[in-house]
Design a protein around this nucleic acid. Structure first.
Length: 475
RNA sequence: GGCCCCUUCGUCUAGCGGUUAGGACGUCGGCCUCUCACGCCGAAAGCAUGGGUUCAAGUCCCGUAGGGGUCACCA
């Protein structure tokens, strides 16, 4: 048996959507698992809405996720070109084949005529179906026309969907649909099908918003004398309100997640887990997914996109990275917020403190800005901790630190305990004002770590500044 | 509305005729503690509904309800 050929065929009308990414992923996983081929094809026949920027964005997003294609834009292949607008002659040729076989016909009905028919059907509260006006008219190429596929009147088509099982469509629910527009550009159903034939695709896995297209496509395969591929229709991804996932549910662009500081592997991991599972396992490496993925294990139910869980998955991934790797990956997120972070010893140290506290690199950069920039003093924290009552302890810590030539965690701990005991204070009464002085807020990594990472000089500067603030009257 | 698909904790899911219905995220409580996290312990939370079939139904069948999809010279 030949290795399967799969494809992902996005329309470049916008960025790569989370849902599209999962479709691409499942295709890719199966191709990689089976040693098949993964083809990328750009369906840009909607010329008004297709843009080169969108193509760019989709390619970037796929690459970022690590989903490489064996044939397609920028890599070429034996079945190119891989942009539909560059394949117009191919569709024409296939349409003519159907025309000659009498399985398709030219239709000269105008849009106005059809709209009138549609309005009439609506007024009579009946389902509009193209009445077949031009079915038996002689072909006159000189008049503007579309090409329609002739669907059989009777019978039904059944196919066995890899995830949904058998699906039957009675032919009387279908109509003679347009396959080629008057400008010669194919409509989706035909363009996709012709390319799937020409590119020898053997398994079509796509969103289940296409199930209703499948029977008519199978009819066209048959009319063309071709064997239809296998189909796998993947359930949609929904928003929290169970409506189809869209922008109002939050970020839906794959690249937006990159920019928020997610790990591509984590995004892939989470996406795979919507609609697919393997026992109780939640965290999967790409290699594991390739080894375990099977369309047979894809569920038939639509899944709600859960940003919190994706955050958790990302965090799990981050925590599996070494300090070195974590630091390296964190750099762009810090720099994106204008912080002068570099992949160096300081950042590796920071990342060690941050790994349990931030779920994305973006969050990390935000949460720990004060290691690279002046503190932003939280007014509430200031009002509570930078007050005259805190001064003695603050001063004692400051002086103790100043007297320490080479601070380390052990010495700092001793200092804090001495200061606390000398004044009969709980450790918190000492640590919190210091924390506010050094970080601007009341939550941070351990205070000794903060001092060590900030360095003695910078810590002293911030303590002095806090001391000055603390002597004022309570605001 | 016609047609198609779907229905296990709030969410993602395990289950493939006999289970105290399991796990994960989230939520809540506790422990740890210099704060915040992490970690650990614990809790609440589910088979949409009505009929069948069967000794036995979350698992099979039918209906109902609910949700989604689709009905273009969009994809």
């Amino acid at each position: 048996m030949d290795a399967p050929r799969l494809r992902f065929a996005p329309s470049p009308t916008g960025y790569l959507h989370i849902g599209g990414a999962r479709t691409a992923l499942f295709n890719w996983l199966w191709a990689r698992r089976t040693g098949g081929r993964f083809v990328l094809r750009i369906e840009d026949t909607d010329r008004e809405r297709s843009t080169a920027e969108a193509v760019r964005a989709i390619l970037d997003a796929l690459r970022w996720l690590g989903l490489d294609w064996d044939e397609g834009p920028e890599v070429g292949g034996p079945h190119g070109p891989y942009f539909q607008t560059e394949r117009l002659g191919i569709y024409r040729a296939y349409a003519e084949k159907l025309l000659r076989a009498g399985r398709a016909y030219a239709c000269t009905c105008t849009r106005e005529e059809l709209d009138a028919l549609r309005r009439e059907a609506e007024a009579r509260k009946v389902q509009f179906r193209y009445p077949g006006t031009c079915r038996d008219k002689p072909y006159d190429p000189s008049r503007p026309h579309v090409v329609r596929f002739r669907v059989p009147e009777a019978g039904a088509t059944t196919f066995h969907d890899l995830v949904k099982g058998p699906i039957t469509t009675p032919h009387d629910t279908l109509q003679d649909e347009v396959i080629l527009r008057s400008d010669g550009v194919p409509l989706y159903n035909f363009g996709a099908l012709v390319d799937d034939v020409a590119m020898e695709i053997t398994l079509v896995a796509r969103g289940d918003d296409h199930v209703n297209n499948t029977a008519r496509q199978i009819l066209m395969y048959q009319a063309l004398g071709e064997t239809p591929p296998a189909f796998a229709h993947l359930p949609m991804i929904l928003g929290a309100d169970k409506a189809r996932l869209s922008k109002r549910h939050g970020a839906t662009s794959v690249l937006a997640y990159r920019d928020m500081g997610y790990l591509p592997g984590a995004v892939v991991n989470y996406l795979a887990r919507i609609g697919w599972s393997h026992g109780d396992q939640e965290i999967f490496s790409l290699e594991e997914l390739v080894k375990l993925f099977d369309f047979a294990d894809v569920g038939a139910t639509a899944g709600v996109f859960n940003p919190e869980k994706m955050l958790w998955v990302n965090h799990e991934w981050m925590r599996q990275l070494s300090d070195e790797e974590l630091a390296r990956q964190a750099v762009p997120s810090f720099q994106a917020t204008g912080l002068p972070a570099r992949d160096d010893e300081k950042l590796r140290h920071l990342v060690r403190l941050a790994r349990d506290r931030a779920q994305t690199f973006g969050e990390m950069a935000r949460q720990f800005r004060y290691f690279y920039a002046p503190i932003e003093l939280d007014p509430k924290a200031r009002a509570k901790f930078l007050v005259p009552e805190s001064r003695p302890a603050l001063q004692a810590i400051r002086d103790g630190l100043a007297a320490m030539s080479a601070p380390d965690a052990e010495r700092l701990e001793r200092l804090f305990h001495e200061v606390a005991e000398a004044r009969a204070l709980g450790l918190g009464k000492v640590a919190q004002p210091v924390r506010v002085a050094l970080t601007g807020g009341t939550a941070s990594p351990g205070i000794y770590d903060v001092i060590l990472l900030l360095g003695r000089e910078e810590s002293l500067r911030r303590l002095d500044a806090a001391l000055a603030l603390a002597q004022g009257v309570r605001p």
